[in-house]
Structures are given as structure tokens and as C-alpha cells.
Amino acid sequence: MSDSKAREAHQSDIVDKIAGAGLIAYGVVHLLIGWLAVQLALGDREGGASSTGAVKQLAEQPFGKFLVWALALGLVLLVVWRLVEAALGYRDEDDPKRLFKRLLSAGKAIVYTGIAYSAISIATGSSSGGGGKGGSGGGGGSTDSMTATLMNNPGGQLLVGAIGVGIIAAGVGLLVVAYRESYLDRLDDQGLRGSSGTTYKWLGRAGHVAKGLSYMVVGGLFLYAAATHEAKKSGGLDQALRTVLEQPFGPVLLAAIGLGFAAYGLFCFATVRHLDR
């Protein structure tokens, strides 16, 4: 495909609509995670504050199966958008930076694929993981199983430790994005103006900080599991947020993180309205 045709395909209205639908779905997931985190901070220990727990919470509402299917479709479209970016995007960047951003988009597509798979599993009734009422939530059991399998192999502890370092690095990256305000690159000029632009800036910053801190706690759990050779010490987002809850002023910190996740969800909606590609 020629450069001009690739650019035209990447910047088409169809891709804009795909991106918008995907970002709406992703925003809904973050709003639900934020709500579950705040509920956890207020003493509700049954729900799972994770993407899986959020989707299960949605499934429990009226017309829940329809809503989960709609969410799953949106997440699949989000995967498609990121794959298009990975293949055709960032053509205005220099080669090293373009390659890095395309790899980053491919990595995000993998993450979104996992969330979409969870949503489809819940919609079809084939999900058996935690995250709903009455469980610890967040897929902690599956994370423990994966970690145990890795650590039982030669060099497994090092691999689990490397995963922890990678997750921490991703968290630090989100904090850097918040500090540099590079998340605003997704907004067009209209979205950056006036009081609305200021609101979007703070929503994006709060959301990226909350996610960054959560990732760092998750990575820390993997490092601790690798150091102690105890798979149960690792865990996903739900276990990380419960770890925050156990710290001094834990409920306050957890509520702030929950509000940050909700802010990220609202920023996703703002990005749909003012997406600049």
C-alpha cells in the first residue's frame, strides 16, 4: 500500500467511528472500576474492582446481557482501532519514534483483547473467574495460577520478576504522560480551549495518575511473589486496590484512586468528542 493510500485509510471517517465506539466502551469500563473502587473504600468487600469485576457488575443490571454485548463490541472495535494504528499510524513521526508508538499501540491492542475476551465470556455465560458478588474479584485466582505455572519452570522467578518490572515501568510511563500532559495530543484545538479544555486536562491527569499508581502496585505484587516464590502474593488490579486499602489512610487513598479511574473514563468520552488523529 502506498504512503498516501495508507494515510487516507488511517484517517478515514470509518476509523474515526471505530475509535469513538471503542473509547466509549473503554470509558464505561473505567467508570465502573472507579465506582467499584469507591464502594470497596466505603466497606463493600464483595465486588471485584477490576475490568472483569466491572463487566460483571454491568451484567447484573437490567438488560445486563445486552449491555455487556454492546460493551464487548465496543472493546473489539477498540482493538481494531489500535491494530490500524499499529499498522498504519504515526506516519508524520520519524522512524524510531514511529516504531515505538506503533509497538505501543500493538501492546494496547493485546490488553484490550483481554478485556474484550472477558466481556464476551461473561456475555455468553462461560466466565468462571472472580469479580462478581461473593468473590474476591479481579481474576486473582487466574493470576495466581499463571504466576505459579511460570515460577515452576526454569528461570520462572526471574520471568515473574521481569513481568513485575515491566508493569511498574508501564505505571511510571503513565505518570510521565500525566506530568508532560501528552495525553492532550489526542484532543483537537477546540477540545483544548477555555474551561472545557481545562476540565479535560485535569480529568486526563487524574486518570493517568490513578492508573499509573495502580499499575505500580500490581507490579510490586509480582516482584514480591517472585522474591518469596509465593504465587498467591501476585495479583491483578483488584488485589492491588485491596492492598492499598490495607495501608494507613487506605480508604481515603483508595477512594481517590477510584475517582481517578472515573476521571479517566470521562476523559475517554471527551476524547471521543474531540478526537484529533
Rank of each mutant, 00 (worst) to 15 (best):
M1A: 11
S2N: 13
S4E: 10
S4R: 07
A6F: 07
A6D: 12
R7N: 14
E8Y: 05
Q11L: 07
S12P: 11
V15P: 11
V15A: 03
D16C: 13
D16Q: 13
G20F: 00
G22F: 01
V29R: 00
L32N: 04
L36V: 00
V38P: 14
A41P: 14
D44W: 01
G47E: 04
A49L: 02
A49R: 02
A54E: 03
V55Y: 08
K56E: 03
G64D: 05
L67C: 12
V68G: 09
A70P: 14
A70H: 06
A70F: 08
L71W: 03
L71V: 02
L75E: 04
L77E: 03
R82E: 05
R82K: 05
V84S: 15
L88K: 07
G89V: 00
R91C: 11
R91A: 11
D92F: 01
D92R: 01
D94H: 07
P96W: 06
R98V: 02
R102M: 09
A106K: 08
G107F: 02
K108E: 13
G114V: 01
A119Y: 01
A123P: 13
G125I: 00
S128K: 10
G131T: 03
G131D: 07
G135A: 07
G139P: 15
G139Q: 10
S142M: 10
S142L: 11
T149L: 12
M151R: 03
M151D: 07
N152W: 09
N153V: 09
P154N: 08
G155A: 05
G156M: 05
L158W: 09
V160K: 10
A162G: 15
I163R: 00
V165W: 03
I168Q: 14
G171Y: 07
Y183M: 08
Y183F: 12
Q190F: 11
Q190D: 14
G191V: 01
R193G: 14
G194R: 08
G197T: 04
Y200P: 13
K201I: 09
W202T: 08
R205C: 14
A206W: 02
G207W: 01
H208F: 13
A210C: 01
K211C: 12
G212P: 15
L213F: 12
L213T: 10
S214R: 09
G219F: 09
L221E: 06
L223N: 15
A225Q: 04
K233E: 06
G235F: 00
G236P: 12
L237C: 07
D238L: 02
A240C: 04
R242A: 04
V244F: 05
L245W: 06
P248G: 05
F249C: 10
G250I: 07
V252L: 13
I257T: 04
I257A: 04
G258V: 00
G258E: 00
G260C: 09
F261V: 06
F269L: 09
F269V: 04
A270P: 15
R273P: 14
H274W: 04
D276M: 07
D276R: 07
D276P: 15
R277F: 05
